[in-house]
Amino acid sequence: MAHKLRLTRKHQVALTETAHRNLKRFCDESGLSPDHALTFLFENASSVFHEETLPHRLRAFKAALAAQET
């Protein structure tokens, strides 16, 4: 018997407009609420994120953040 999915942790999340649109599109396509969509993505991160491109994209994102702060 499958366990009941209980959302026990609450986090306030700030998103860019692009991230919000992508989350909303994913919710619409999957039929999930934003809470369940984020739960799915993080619980399955190792299989959802492309391991070869993730480090490059993370470095680029961090560089953009650093440039924005200066």
Rank of each mutant, 00 (worst) to 15 (best):
R6K: 14
L41R: 08
K62G: 03
S33F: 13
H20G: 14
G31E: 05
M1F: 15
D28S: 09
H11S: 07
R25M: 05
A45M: 04
C27T: 00
E69D: 07
P55H: 03
E52S: 00
T70W: 06
A14V: 01
S46D: 12
H3T: 07
A2I: 07
V48Y: 14
A64Q: 05
Q12F: 13
A37M: 08
R25Q: 05
E17T: 01
L23I: 10
K4Q: 09
D35R: 15
A63E: 01
T53A: 03
A60P: 08
V48G: 02
F61Y: 09
E17P: 05
S47P: 02
F26A: 08
K10Q: 08
F26P: 05
E52R: 10
E51I: 06
K24A: 15
D28T: 10
T39A: 10
T53G: 00
T18A: 14
R6P: 00
L15F: 06
V13H: 14
K4H: 06
F42E: 15
L7V: 15
R9H: 07
T39E: 07
E52D: 08
Q68Y: 14
L7I: 14
H50I: 15
H36C: 06
K62N: 08
F26S: 01
H3F: 11
P55K: 01
E52M: 06
L7Y: 12
A66T: 08
F40K: 14
S33R: 05
T16W: 00
H3D: 00
H20K: 09
T53Q: 11
H56D: 08
R6Q: 05
V13E: 11
E17D: 12
A60Y: 07
L7A: 12
H11Q: 11
H3Y: 13
H3W: 10
T53K: 15
T39N: 08
L32C: 08
H56F: 07
T16L: 00
L41Y: 13
T39V: 01
H11I: 02
G31P: 02
F40M: 14
A60S: 12
N22G: 02
H20E: 07
R21F: 15
R21A: 02
S33P: 09
T53F: 11
R57L: 15
R21G: 01
S30W: 02
L38T: 07
R25D: 04
T53L: 13
E51T: 00
K24P: 02
M1V: 13
F61K: 04
L32Q: 07
D28H: 12
M1W: 15
Q68W: 09
T53M: 11
H56K: 05
L7S: 13
F26K: 06
A67M: 03
A63T: 01
K62I: 13
L5Y: 10
R21E: 00
A63W: 01
K62P: 02
F42R: 06
T8P: 11
T53H: 13
